[in-house]
Design a protein around this nucleic acid. Structure first.
Length: 196
DNA sequence: TGATAGATCGGCT
DNA sequence: GCCGATCTATCAG
């Protein structure tokens, strides 16, 4: 049985990241409700050279150092926004990057946000996931989950045998750590070549 | 104050 | 498979 969301958010990012698989990510917009099932996450923590929080608290990373349950949104490569769920206690800089999700509701609106038609291509990457949700700036960073337009809902338990741990994507430090988690055989994960 | 790498993506070869 | 887009945070000097 999967723990309640509130409990997951209090855990450290490494424990929370696999538990967030299968949970539902929801965004309320004036045009409707967008809903996706999380199928790929990555954990980032304070003693992790690949983490934005590794070099300490800055205006950008401040939300990571708050108590679990906040959002952390950052802008990268001059073009993309990425969405993280902050976990753990206040004072520790950690979070879980949401890398990919399976569209459930509001698919037409997500297609419009992304300007693509293939459902598998709506949120199979962190930049794509943010774009599908209509996140085009960092104004949600630091906001509290379920008290902003972003909600998190519990989902079905994913069997441990269906959760795969692998090295994280797109980093150059701590590349050996298997802190990326995804749902085995899901067609909605990013970089699908390892997916079995 | 300048250089560069970056938790990415899409287009082209 | 490689490369350019395009902006920011961080580090070197």
């Amino acid at each position: 049985m999967k723990p309640e969301i509130e409990h997951i958010l209090k855990l450290d990012s490494l424990a929370a990241a696999p538990l967030l698989l299968g949970c539902y990510l929801i965004r309320q917009t004036p045009a409707g409700r967008l809903k996706l099932k999380i199928v790929e996450t990555e954990a980032y923590h304070q003693d992790d050279p690949a983490s934005h929080s590794f070099r300490g608290l800055t205006p950008r990373t401040a939300p990571m150092f708050q108590a679990g349950g906040r959002l952390y949104v950052y802008f990268t490569y001059g073009m993309h926004y990425c969405l993280n769920i902050v976990t753990g206690p206040a004072g520790v800089g950690e979070g879980v990057l949401l890398r990919a999700a399976e569209p459930v509701d509001g698919i037409e609106q997500m297609k419009a946000n992304r300007q693509v038609n293939d459902i598998r291509n709506l949120a199979n990457g962190p930049g794509k996931l943010a774009q599908a949700l209509g996140i085009f700036d960092t104004s949600l960073s630091g906001k509290i989950l379920n008290k902003s337009s972003i909600l998190l809902e519990n989902g079905k338990d994913i069997a441990a045998s269906d959760i795969v741990a692998s090295p994280r994507i797109g980093i150059t430090k701590a590349t050996e750590q298997p802190w990326r988690f995804y749902v085995r055989r899901s067609p909605f994960v990013s970089k699908i070549r390892y997916n079995n």
